[in-house]
C-alpha cells in the first residue's frame, strides 16, 4: 500500500510533522517494501490555503492513504473529494511506528 506521511525531514529517520498543510516534507512510502520518495511540501511559500495546495499535490500522486497529525477543514474536504482516506498517527513517534500501526490496522481514521 502506498501511503503519504508528513515529516520534518526527507528520510525514514525523520521526525513526524503534525501539521498537514504546513509540514516540511511529505514521504511517499510503500508500506511493504519501505521504498520511499521524499518531497518538500510545495505549500511552504503560500500564505493561505496551504492545506489545499498540499492536498492537491498529494492527490496527484494517487496514494492509497495519507497520514498526518491533523487535517485542517479545507485539506480534509479536498482529500475527501479525491477519495483518499485520511489517518491520524496519534502517539506514534517514528516513521516505523506509523507503518507498523498502519499494517496492523490500528491507526485512527480521520
Amino acid at each position: 500500500m502506498k501511503l503519504f506521511l508528513t515529516t520534518t525531514g526527507p528520510d525514514l529517520h525523520s521526525e513526524l510533522d503534525p501539521r498537514f498543510g504546513r509540514c516540511a516534507y511529505l514521504l511517499l512510502i510503500d508500506s511493504e517494501t519501505l521504498e520511499f520518495q521524499s518531497f518538500p511540501n510545495p505549500s511552504s511559500s503560500v500564505s493561505g490555503g496551504a492545506g489545499i495546495k498540499t492536498a492537491q499535490f498529494v492527490a496527484d500522486l494517487k496514494p492509497d492513504t495519507v497520514i498526518s497529525g491533523d487535517f485542517g477543514p479545507n485539506a480534509a474536504s479536498a482529500l475527501r473529494s479525491a477519495n483518499i482516506p485520511m489517518y491520524l498517527y496519534g502517539d506514534c513517534k517514528t516513521v516505523e511506528d506509523v507503518v507498523r500501526r498502519l499494517n496492523s490496522n490500528s491507526l485512527k481514521r480521520f
Binding site: 490555503g49 489545499i52 477519495n83
Partner: peptide
Amino acid sequence: CTEVCQFQAIAVLGQRTLVFPQL
C-alpha cells in the same frame, strides 16, 4: 485554473475540481 489562482481557492482533486469560497 489551479495554477493561476494565487489564493489556492480552486483545486483539481482527481476527477473533481473544487472551489473554496472562503479563500
